[in-house]
Design a protein around this nucleic acid. Structure first.
Lengths: 215, 215, 215, 215
DNA sequence: GATGAATGAGAGTTCATTCAT
DNA sequence: AATGAATGAACTCTCATTCAT
């Protein structure tokens, strides 16, 4: 009997706690966030939180994973719609910027809080970084194979690209510049493209989110 | 009238505490480090630590500042020896990689622990980042003025460069790759140079630490 | 819906902590009392104490207030039963002596510990003193109005009366003399009465702990 | 050789520390006063303080004793100049009020800080109280013997008198009323006199500090 | 499922006292 | 005599986690 609705309610509550987690962690940081804060923000009690998560860390980790998955999903979608390594790269960059821009609090966890929240998170974060660095690398490898760009140390390049994106996003989060993160797209695109030996080409309108062949 | 030696002893002890701080913070992270740990590592007592520093945070901040100053000093020296924007850039990059490489523990604080150690440190860290981003930017501005590279958004480029360097260094710290951080120099140099529109030129051997303009 | 019992249990525990507070504060004094001592005496944990009170001081203050209220309540009752300023004064004095006598530990806080427990308590204590000085003063004012005693500086008289009572009680607490505080009643009554120009009269027997004027 | 001047300098320094003690203890209370505070106020160092006093408590105790002795000396002088128990009593009361009034900070220690500064001081304070209560009692005994006042429980009366004086002085210290403590003299004198059965008499001018026969 | 009272192992910080110089 | 660096025992308060109801 009504097992389904029960489960649904449970999932709902769990989600509410996660959302509360984003809000509070982004506001106070991991260490300064009390489980009570999360409980209050989620309109439940401390015990309620512990029913859904084994501990505070698990909430944070779930959030990191959530952000990672969200980004990965969007990137896949965007890249699937694009043709050719260059268009895929453009699409990915723009999608990433837009995703961070649209989830500022979650991004803050991902970029600012995660790293130093404790020894335990370094590993989890490096995994997330690796996930995207690998994605970038694969695309670069394809581009090399396709002859679009000259051969190069794609692991290093991917790492550097990710770092560039990371720092630009962190700056935006902490200093508010540029006002809209997406505004960094054209210059960043040019920078990254050139760095791997790609000559300029007409830019695929950032406004439409579409991309087109690399010419 | 032996006020001097007294002061010297005091400064010495202060320094010993700072060195202990690097070691312990790098090993355990900021939050997991007990003041007692630092005291033990410095062969003194908790009270001794508190005689020289008002609190744990102050030790960390002093270390951050120390790392920033060390790096700044080295960069200035290296850049002063080089001629032309390109050579200066090469010298700076190599010097940075070598400095991090030679102060792994201190770098760990700077790169890994600092950011998430608490809201209070974000500001201090952003200041350090800004310090070097500004340095990079000035050099890029000069390069543009000198006509060495085409005009571009130097603020964004500087941020991206710093980010690239940051991520590469963080990877090295956390994964141990590349084995020697300096090994990343040639590929990173090429990447960064290209990104701002600089064409290749013979690389000044990293081993000799010399560089020269491309004419 | 058994919110009530929950609350009852909570209130009960709170009360147990207060009672433990009286015992330990009286035994060790405010500063020398550890929150752990109170917790142990109340058969709970340090955290338990902090769940019910924000800090050690709050426990002490609650106790002071409790003592003040207890005394005020008893005085009101006793005075309501008496007729005429003189009888009310007698009743109040006797009630006060008996209350202190019957709550030795609590009185110790009130008389001995409170004042020097810290700058923060001086204010709270002066308020309690004022409370009773005002009570005395009102009664004296009434007595003057009723023509029972000649006009006089009732504020000073009330202060002096309170002081006399205070010192007598403190002596009893610290030296154990007189053996029963109530034994001081007849002499103290006579002293205070005369001090404001009241001629002796037969004593209304304190429940018949009786005494009578020497006249 | 110059042993004398050495000793003089030492005594001087000791005195400076005591004066610093009065100032700081009165300002912050015993527990909240740091030995460093006293050292700073006395323009010396922590070690300097410990050269002259074995510990913090000893400074406080010395101060208490100093106040007690000062008061005792003055009372003796004033009482020696007066003739008859009544005049002696008047002289003593006025002298006490004037002494407290003229040494407000020291009085604060004596009246406010001493009692609750810790279990250790209760004894010392009770001794000081006893000293004066005994003095009062002797005078009352003489007055009884001389037939000036009717027989009464002089121990209790002395205690009550002291308490009255204590509370009046404490009020003045903490609330600033009356503006000049000496202003309480006439009313207090009348009150105390009457309390032991003394009929009014012309008041000995408080202004001259002299007193005259009891009439 | 939910609640919130209870737990208790710390953690940072303070400061009287000591002592080498 | 004096200094001020060093010591280390205490102490208050915190908070993730548990658990009876």
């Amino acid at each position: 009997m009504r097992a389904e609705p029960e489960q649904a309610r449970s999932r709902e509550r769990r989600q509410r706690i996660l959302e509360a987690g984003v809000a509070v962690f982004a506001r106070k940081g991991f260490r300064d966030t009390l489980v009570d804060d999360i409980a209050a923000e989620a309109d439940t009690s401390k015990g309620g939180v512990y029913f859904h998560f084994p501990n505070k860390q698990a909430i944070f980790l779930a959030l990191l994973e959530q952000m990672g998955s969200l980004l990965a999903r969007r990137l896949e979608e965007a890249m699937a719609r694009a043709e050719g390594p260059r268009a895929r790269g453009d699409a990915a960059l723009l999608t990433a910027l837009r995703t961070f821009s649209g989830h500022r609090a979650l991004s803050r966890l991902f970029f600012v809080e995660a790293m130093g929240a404790g020894r335990q998170f370094s590993a989890a974060m490096m995994e997330q970084h690796s996930r995207f660095i690998t994605l970038i690398r694969h695309n670069l490898d394809e581009a090399v194979t396709a002859g679009v760009i000259p051969p190069l140390d794609t692991e290093l390049a991917a790492t550097a690209w990710f770092g560039a994106l990371y720092e630009v996003t962190t700056r935006w989060l902490l200093t508010g510049r540029p006002a809209r993160l997406e505004d960094a797209y054209p210059a960043l695109r040019l920078l990254l493209a050139r760095s791997v030996g790609l000559e300029e080409s007409g830019d695929p309108g950032a406004e439409r989110g579409t991309t087109q062949g690399e010419g």
